[in-house]
Design a binder for these strands. Structure first.
Lengths: 215, 215, 215, 215
DNA sequence: AATGAATGAGCATTCATTCAT
DNA sequence: CATGAATGAATGCTCATTCAT
C-alpha cells in the first residue's frame, strides 16, 4: 500500500491529528450515532490502523479530543456573538447565539452524550482532567466576558449558566434524536409529543435558564 | 444445577421479570455505568442465561424495561407530591418533589443517558414505541393534574415542562457523574468548577424552567 | 393454552406421529433446506415442544422417520409401476417410474442428503439400523420383483441398481439445488453449465445405470 | 502467547491460507463429518481465532475453499491420466483414473455433501459464484481434452459426464459412510447389503455413465 | 399424556490494541 | 514514522432437551 507522507515537523503532526479527527467525525455523523471502529477511521483518513495509535493512546481519546475541539469552537462562536454586540447584550441574542452553533453541529451533542459515560472510561484520568482544565479556563474567560455584557449576574454565575445550558442541550438532544427506525414510526399522530422539536425546546429552555438571574 | 421454581401463573411470571430487572439494576449501579452482560444478570437473578431470553427478546429490552419502570416510579412520586398538596402548589415544592426521586435514584438518570442512544438500538421499533406511548399517556395525565395545581400554565405546557426537566436532569447527571478515576482527581482545587454539585444545579435549573411560565 | 386431545389408543398415537412428521416436512420444504427447530415443528403441529419428545427421542429421529416414510413411498410407487406393466418392462418405463416420484418429491432428496451425514449422528445406532433393516427387506422384495420383469439381471443386481439410482439422485439434487441467493445469480450466461436441469440429468443418468446390465 | 510469524509477502499469505485449510481438513476428517469450530481450526493451525478471519470472511468460506481446492486437485489428477495416455483412452482407464483420486480423498466427497446445502448458506453469493465459475472453466477445459481422447462424445458431453460422475460419487459416499456407531453395527450379516462397498459401486456406476455415450 | 418453563452448552464474530517489519 | 498482520478477550443468542406441574 501507499505509505502516508511522514509527518516530521510539529505542524505536520498536528495536521495529521486533525485529519484523523475529521475522519472520525465524518464517520460518526454518518453512522447514526455509533462510535465508528478505529479501522474505519484509519481507512477514511488514508492511514493504517497503527498510525492512529501514534497520535492517540486509545480509541476513546480520539473522540474525546474531537468533542473538545467542537466544544472549543462552540465557545468561540459565543465569544464572537458577545464581541459583535459591543456593549450590553440581551438574553435573547445571547441565547440565539448559544443555540446557533449547537443547532448546526448536532453531532457535537450526540458525541457529548457519549462523552460523559463512555468516552471517559478508557482514558487515563490525567488526560481527561487535562481536557477539563482547558475547558474550565475557557469557560471562566467567557464567563467573565459575559458578565461584562449582561447585567445582574453574580460573579461566577455566567460560567455556571453555560454549564447548565450545555447539560440541558445534551439531555434534550438525546430525547430529540431517536434511532432511524424509531424516528420513522414516530410519525404517528398519537406520538406527536415525542417528536421533540429540538430548536424550539432548546431556545425555550435556554431562555428560561438565562432569565432566571435571580435564582 | 438448581432449577429455579417454575413461573406458571401470570403473577409469577411478572414476579420473575421483576427479579431480572432488579438484578440488572443492581449490576448496572455496581458496574460504574457499563451495561452488564446478560450472563451476569442471569447469574445474579439465580437463573440460566436462556431464561432471561424467555422474558426479554434482547439484552437492550431488559434495560429499557428497567428504565421505563423507574420513570414510571418517578411520575408516581411527582403525582403523590401534587396530591399531597391539596389545592395549588408552589413551584418550589413542585421542583423539590420532582428532584427528590431523581436524587435518590441516580441510576435512573445514568440509564436514561443510554436510553436514547444505546438501548433503543437493538430493539424492535414497535417495542420502543410501545414504551413511549405508555409514557406519553402518563405524562399527559400528570400534566393535566399539574395544570390544575399550578396557575398560569397553558394547556399542554406542563407535560412539556416535565420533558424539559427530564432532559435537563439527564444532561446534568452526565456532567456530574464522571468515572471513578476521574472523580478522584477532581478533588484538585483548580477543578472545583467541574465538581458539579448535582443537587444544587438540578434544583436551580428546574426552578428556572418552571418559573419561566411566560415563555 | 389449549391442550391437545390425548392420544390413548395406538391408532391415535400413530396419527399423532404422522401429524408431527407432516409438520416437520412442511417446514423443511418451506425453510429452504434448513432443518426446522423442534419448537417450530411442535407449533406447526399444534403441540407443545415436550409432546414431540414423547413420540421421538431426538430431533434427528423425527427427520429420519420422515425420510424413511418417503423412501417407502418411493418404493411403493416403483412397485406399482412394475405391477402395472404386467409382464416385462422396458428400461425406459422403469426409469420414468423411478424418476417420477423423486421429481415430485424433491424434499425427499434434500432430506436424504442430510440423512447420511447429519441425521444419523444424534440417533441411537440401533434405531438407525432398524430403519435400514426395514429398507433392506423392502429393497430385496422390490429387487426380486424387478428381476422378474427385466431380463438380463443377475440375482441381487436390481436392488443394487436401486441403491445406485438413489445415490445418483441424491448427489445430483445437491448440484441442482443451490441456495436461493446463488440460484438468482446463476442466471448469468457464463454459468449456464451450473444450472443443472435436474429432470434431464436424472433420467439420463438412471438410464445409463440401468442399461449397463452387463457390468 | 506465541505470535505466529507475520505473513507479509503474498506467497506467505497464500501459505498461511493453505495452513488454515489443512488444519480445517484434518479436523473435518477426524471429527466424523461435523464441521469443526473456527476456534478448533485456529488452534490446530497454531493461530488465534481472529487470524482465521483475516483470511476467510466466514467459517463456511474456509470449507468451501477447501472443497474447491480438492476438486481442483481431482480435475488435475484426471487431466494427468488423460495426458499420460497419449492418444485415445479406454473408458475403463478413464473411470479408474477418475475414481482413484476420490478413493484416496474420501473427505472431499464428505465435504461435498455439505457443500451444496450448508456451505453455500453463509457466504456471499458472489463468492460462491466465483468458485463455481472457476470450476466451470476447468471443467470445460478438461471436457474438451477428454473429447479429444474418447471417440463418440458429442461436444459438451464430457463435462456433463464429469458433473454426473461427481454427483454420483457424492451421493454414493453418503450411503457408504455412516457414523462410526452405525458402521460397527453394520457388521451384522443381515445388513450386508448396507455395507456398500464404495470402490466397487463407484466404478460400476461410473462405467455405466461413461459407457452410455449414446444417451 | 401433555405442557412449556428452565436449562446451559455451544459458537461465530468483532474489534481495540500491539508490535515485528 | 508508518504499516497491517496477529492477537484473543468478550458476549449475545439459539435451541435441543428435561422435567415439574
Amino acid at each position: 500500500m501507499a505509505v502516508a507522507r511522514r509527518a516530521r515537523a510539529d505542524w505536520q503532526k498536528q495536521e495529521r491529528q486533525r485529519e484523523i479527527l475529521l475522519a472520525a467525525e465524518a464517520l460518526f455523523i454518518g453512522a447514526g450515532g455509533q462510535l465508528p471502529s478505529v479501522a474505519a477511521v484509519a481507512a477514511r483518513a488514508g492511514l493504517a490502523k497503527g498510525t492512529v495509535y501514534l497520535y492517540f493512546k486509545t480509541k476513546e481519546e480520539v473522540f474525546l479530543a474531537l468533542l473538545n475541539w467542537r466544544l472549543g469552537e462552540w465557545l468561540d462562536a459565543v465569544t464572537e456573538v458577545l464581541e459583535a454586540s459591543k456593549g450590553p447584550i440581551s438574553v435573547d441574542r445571547l441565547v440565539a447565539g448559544t443555540a446557533d452553533y449547537l443547532l448546526n453541529h448536532p453531532d457535537t451533542l450526540r458525541l457529548a452524550s457519549y462523552g460523559h459515560s463512555v468516552l471517559e472510561q478508557n482514558i487515563e484520568a490525567e488526560t481527561v482532567i487535562g481536557y477539563k482544565l482547558a475547558m474550565v479556563e475557557r469557560l471562566a474567560e467567557l464567563g467573565a466576558k459575559t458578565e461584562g455584557c449582561l447585567p445582574g449576574l453574580v460573579p461566577g454565575q455566567a460560567s455556571r449558566l453555560y454549564l447548565q445550558s450545555y447539560a440541558y442541550a445534551v439531555g434534550l438532544w438525546q430525547m430529540a434524536d431517536p434511532p432511524e427506525a424509531v424516528k420513522a414510526l414516530l410519525q404517528r399522530d398519537d406520538l406527536a409529543m415525542f417528536r421533540v422539536d429540538f430548536e424550539t425546546e432548546l431556545k425555550a429552555g435556554l431562555t428560561a435558564l438565562w432569565n432566571a438571574l435571580d435564582n
